[in-house]
Amino acid sequence: MASASPSLPSTLRMLSSTLQRPPKISSPLLSLSLPSKTPALSLRFTQIFSGVSGLHPTKKHLGLRALASATDMASEKRVFDSGEDLAVSLAKYTADLSDHFAKNRGAFTVVLSGGSLIKCLRKLVEPPYVDSIDWSKWHVFWVDERVVPKDHVDSNYKLAYDGFLSQVPILPGHVYAINDALSAEGAAEDYETCLKHLVNTKVVDVSATSRFPKFDLMLLGMGPDGHVASLFPGHPLLNESQKWVTYIKDSPKPPPERITFTFPVINSSAYIALVAPGASKADAVYTALGGGSSQNSETLPVQRVAPEWALTWFLDKDAASKL
């Protein structure tokens, strides 16, 4: 079972001596189709998939504008009548990707966020997934974290541990929590150092397009204001283009001190599931997907999410009520 992870320096020492180099993917993942839908009766609307049914092997040859257009083509929206239906679909989606990457790359790198996301993963800790997933291949990260002790009520680690990690047999050394003994700036630098080590040892893939770390699956939540990770509307960190991990000391949402992945890292992900249930998200969902505009006429942070392969929105009928 997962347990409180060691500090990053000790984790790095352990990793350098114990982790094995997983096999590289020898060809584009053309054989991987998107996970199948839940039964049609569970959907309020039909799935909307505005492009090809798989990956885009030519995207690495495109410029940034063309890349953004290709990513839009790989966008999918799933809307469900209930949170239960959403959780069922998200579990299958995650399990299918886990199986593929575990078999073809030898590891499955998963990035978690906080908020309602962990509750939406609840089906993974139940049969058939808890028994069929190869949890030993999972490596778990956080897209952002509050700079608080791991047992603090505001900790994303604690939220994930209580609701998910403690119930599945992920190896403790494969759970990469921040070093909460450091300052926000120090914790961000330490986490980036950890990621660079894991890229060098081939645990985390690297994007041939951006040269930033390429996580297999990023499970993102979204706030009512359209923020993702700890990247908030109008904040200067939205434009950070060099760092992998940075920090914020003036978060408009408490607690104020956090670390966060930057958009170049988020968008280098192979797959992103954007999980945004609830009526409080309806305005932001409409702005992002329905052609609306934000109150201050600025692009919402969530509108900048554009992974290398596929973006899938998981919404309930309340979140999609204004579409």
Results as ranks from 00 to 15, higher is better:
Val140Trp: 09
Lys196Pro: 13
Glu308Thr: 10
His174Phe: 01
Leu219Tyr: 05
Gly54Phe: 08
Ala87Gln: 01
Thr262Val: 02
Ser280Lys: 01
Leu34Tyr: 13
Phe215Pro: 03
Thr18Pro: 00
Ser321Lys: 14
Val140Phe: 12
Val285Ile: 15
Lys24Tyr: 06
Lys103His: 08
Arg105Glu: 05
Ile259Gln: 05
Pro23Lys: 07
Asp205Met: 02
Leu323Tyr: 11
Ala2Asp: 11
Tyr161Val: 06
Ala87Asn: 06
Asp72Ala: 15
Ser53Met: 13
Ser251Cys: 05
Leu217Gln: 01
Ala320Leu: 08
Ile118Val: 02
Leu12His: 14
Glu257Ser: 11
Ala270Phe: 05
Cys194Asp: 06
Pro252His: 06
Ala306Gln: 12
Thr287Asn: 13
Leu219Ala: 05
Ile25Met: 01
Asp162Glu: 07
Pro224Thr: 02
Ser31Leu: 07
Leu219His: 12
Phe212Gly: 05
Ser297Glu: 02
Gly186Trp: 14
Gln167Cys: 10
Leu86Ala: 14
Thr262Tyr: 07
Val88Cys: 08
Pro169Ala: 03
Ser82Arg: 09
Met14Phe: 11
Leu124Tyr: 00
Leu55Met: 13
Val245Ile: 06
His197Asp: 15
Asn267Asp: 01
Leu124Cys: 12
Ile178Cys: 01
Pro169Cys: 11
Leu231Met: 09
Lys196Arg: 01
Asn239Pro: 11
Val203Ala: 11
Ser183Thr: 15
Tyr176His: 09
Leu117Lys: 08
Arg146Asn: 02
Gln167Asp: 02
Pro252Leu: 02
Arg78Ser: 05
Lys59Val: 10
Ser269Trp: 06
Val265Trp: 07
Asp96Trp: 00
Gly106Cys: 00
Ser10Glu: 11
Ser89Val: 07
Ser69Val: 05
Lys59Ile: 15
Tyr176Asn: 05
Lys24Arg: 08
Asp85Arg: 14
Val305Ala: 08
Trp244His: 09
Phe49Cys: 14
Lys196Ile: 10
Asp225Phe: 11
Lys214Tyr: 13
Ala2Pro: 09
Lys37Gly: 14
Ala279Pro: 11
Gln20Trp: 14
Val275Asp: 10
Pro28His: 06
Leu165Ser: 03
Ser155Leu: 03
Asp316Ser: 02
Tyr271Ile: 10
Asp190Thr: 12
Gly226Ile: 04
Thr71Gln: 05
Cys120Gly: 13
Val110Met: 10
Gly51Glu: 08
Ser82Ile: 08
Ser53Trp: 08
Ala284Asp: 12
Val203Lys: 15
Phe108Leu: 04
Val265Phe: 09
Lys253Tyr: 09
Ser210Lys: 00
Ser183Cys: 08
Leu55Tyr: 14
Phe215Gln: 00
Val199Thr: 09
Thr38Glu: 10
Lys137His: 03
His227Ser: 03
His100Lys: 13
Glu189Val: 07
Lys196Ser: 10
